[in-house]
Write a protein that binds this DNA or RNA. Structure first.
Length: 259
DNA sequence: CCGACAACCTGACGGC
DNA sequence: TGCCGTCAGGTTGTCG
């Protein structure tokens, strides 16, 4: 039971819903769920709170005391507290009637969940056909597959031995099969390790996630890959891509090739 | 439809 | 020691 909900500022990326307190105070949580990178908290009043942690967001469970960047605080009927902490405020909180959840704007164009059966090589082939962008950017596109971020795209492409520059629509079926397997492998390993700790990420219990220690390429520019080659980095779409040219094909992208 | 870029923010880090 | 530039897990919008 949500005994109280308090906002300590007016907004994250966008304003907090102005009826948040009115609609959630006293409500009972009936369901916790997730879609893509959004967390869903449903109540017996027929509302669902949709939150996104952005880059730096985290829930702090039973904090000893509130601290800087604790922007929203929920107190439960058992006297426990949840503080939504987000230094960069790239996160978001929305509240919608549960029966209109499917109409939430950010959910309109989302692709399948990467761990759902429907995300397979045949789907990917259809989704990527005609795409004139790199496989790296295509996998970051939440319309193609929903929930992969920069780290896991880099790691999955490495695992599948696919050149991140490769045109998405030109990837062969065998490589797509490897890619789907790699996405599954990387996500399952990351979940088992408790997530990826970079700087300010921690699990809700405050413990760190250890998958970052298992990164093969992410954040390892200049370090040796298992093959002996060196991990490289380039920027595309404003994001860093880490890869091993020796393992993933050393072709230079067209735009970097001397004419 | 696509790429490039900017905006939204704070904080950590490296170089000097 | 401290200042400054750069970079960071993501999403959304504009412009060409």
């Amino acid at each position: 039971m949500i005994r109280s909900i308090e906002t300590r500022r007016a907004n994250l990326r966008r304003a907090f819903p102005d009826d948040l307190r009115q609609r959630l105070t006293g409500a009972r949580v009936t369901d916790l769920d997730r879609r893509a990178k959004y967390g869903l908290i449903s109540t017996d009043r027929g509302d669902t709170m949709i939150f996104h942690l952005g880059m730096s967001g985290r829930w702090r469970v039973d904090p000893v005391e509130l601290q800087l960047h604790d922007h929203l605080v929920i107190e439960t009927g058992e006297g426990r507290r949840l503080a939504l902490n987000d230094a960069r405020r790239f996160g978001s909180v929305d509240l919608v009637p549960t029966d209109t959840l499917a109409a939430f704007p950010a959910f309109q164009l989302l692709g399948p969940e990467p761990l759902d059966r429907s995300f397979d090589a045949a789907y990917l082939r259809a989704a990527l056909t005609g795409k004139r962008t790199s496989i790296k950017l295509a996998l970051l596109d939440q319309r193609v597959v929903a929930g992969l971020g920069n780290i896991y795209v880099c790691e999955a492409l490495y695992d599948a031995r696919i050149d991140p520059h490769h045109m998405a629509g030109d990837i062969g079926y065998d490589a797509l099969v490897r890619l789907v397997d790699a996405v599954h492998l990387v996500l399952e390993a990351a979940i088992a390790a408790g997530g990826s700790t970079l700087r300010d990420y921690a699990r809700p219990d405050g413990e760190l996630g250890y998958f970052s220690k298992l990164f093969a390429v992410y954040g390892r520019e200049g370090e040796p890959c298992a093959c002996g080659g060196l991990v490289a980095r380039y920027a595309e779409g404003g994001r860093s891509t880490f890869w091993c040219p020796a393992c993933q094909g050393a072709k230079l992208p067209k735009r970097l090739r001397k004419s």
